Amino acid sequence: MATVSARIRLTRDLPTWLVYLQLGTFATFLYGLSAALPLLRDDLHVSNAVAGLHGTAMAAGNVLTGLLLPVLTRRFGRRALVWAGLAGMSASVVLIVLVPAAAATILGYGLGGGLGSMALYSAMAALSEHHGPAGPAAISEANGVAVVLGIGVSLLLSVAAQSGLGWRPALLVTPVLTAVLAAALGRVWVPERDRSAGGPHATAGRPGWRFHLAGAVLFCVVALEFCFNLWAAALFAANTGLSAAQAATGLTAFTVGLAVGRFAGGNLALRLPPARLLVGAMLLTGAGWLVFWLGAQPVIGYAGLVIAGLGAALQFPLALAGMITASGEHPDRASAAAPIWAGVAMAVGPLLLGALADGFGTSTAFLLVPVLIGLAVCGVLSSRTRS
């Protein structure tokens, strides 16, 4: 196994770079709107509950995309769905920027989340099929590019918010990148299999239990990442005594870990079996969580979040690759089911942790993280043992 894995090569051709940049454009949407939510809440003068509906709308958009994606893929193909998704996502950003009303912004988050998800999962299915055994490495590396662009937009939005222009124009990076990418590389695409030859568009039987188990693993890792994104700053403040504004820098430490881990993970995925690497990544996140959870000093908290981010970096790419592998010759089945699992996780994970925090305190509630890690590890090992 090790000898075979060592011979796998990742060829970064022009279609590969196109997908990398398309996923990076999606990341500017996701990271930009996530960073803008507190600013949007202040501008609209709405409650935290109403502001939270924006995230709920994005999760609902993910689920709806998963339900419609099989039909849309058979009818139009991945290439059309990716470009239509990016265009619709960009239009949603323009709606959010131009219409300062809660109903319009919630609609924009929901439509953008659904259409962006359509582009995201269609592009990653194409990327995985294009690279075959190197698919997990390509997906990890693509997510690394996405995180870097996402961080850049978050920083740009922070700077713009303190300038005379305000934060809203910074969100227009997404439609600008979409337009530039379409103009420069619009004729490039990943070669697709002939639909009549059996491939990803062919009719298949019902998916097996390993496919559903891979979906449950994806649910756990997405819920885990969103728990860190939305609640790590609150625990950081509670543990160290930092102000809420100072503790928010902890999310940057976690995101730095994500970026470094996804680029490094591309090489690791070429050398190690994906299941073994995924289990190792989850154990690394568990170690980082423990350091962070116990740390009473800011430097220890930062270190724990970086370590947790390094592990979390590989979890979504490898879990998604696991779903694609479990789908056999039907990667579009995975690209349709994945946003459903991910959308439900985005809604349920942070909500459950918040409810636990209200009842037992943030520190106790954060024990949800090792529970999710344990469930995901059991899912991966169970699938491997019975294969």
Rank of each mutant, 00 (worst) to 15 (best):
L320Y: 15
V222D: 03
R41S: 04
G164S: 12
D42P: 00
A326I: 13
A214M: 05
L305C: 08
A60Q: 11
T252Q: 10
F360V: 14
R187L: 08
A334H: 07
V176Q: 05
L156P: 00
A161W: 01
E141V: 06
G261Q: 10
C378T: 14
R195N: 02
N48M: 10
Q22T: 13
D43R: 15
A275N: 12
G186F: 07
A197G: 14
T364K: 07
W189S: 15
R333A: 11
F226Q: 13
A334G: 10
F316C: 06
R12H: 11
A27M: 13
A126W: 02
S90A: 14
A6V: 09
V188H: 09
T3N: 10
V94N: 04
V71H: 13
F226N: 14
V145C: 06
L23T: 14
G349V: 02
A337M: 15
F26G: 14
V4C: 05
V94F: 05
Q22D: 09
V279R: 07
A308G: 01
G198D: 06
Q246F: 00
L37C: 02
L367A: 11
V19A: 09
G116N: 08
L235D: 04
I151Y: 01
T364R: 11
Q246D: 12
A179K: 05
S128N: 14
A214L: 09
A59E: 02
P274I: 03
A259Y: 01
A179V: 09
V369M: 06
S117A: 15
L185F: 15
C378D: 04
A376V: 03
A49F: 05
A35V: 05
D332L: 07
A253F: 08
R206T: 12
V148K: 01
V145M: 09
L37N: 09
F29N: 09
R12K: 13
G24E: 03
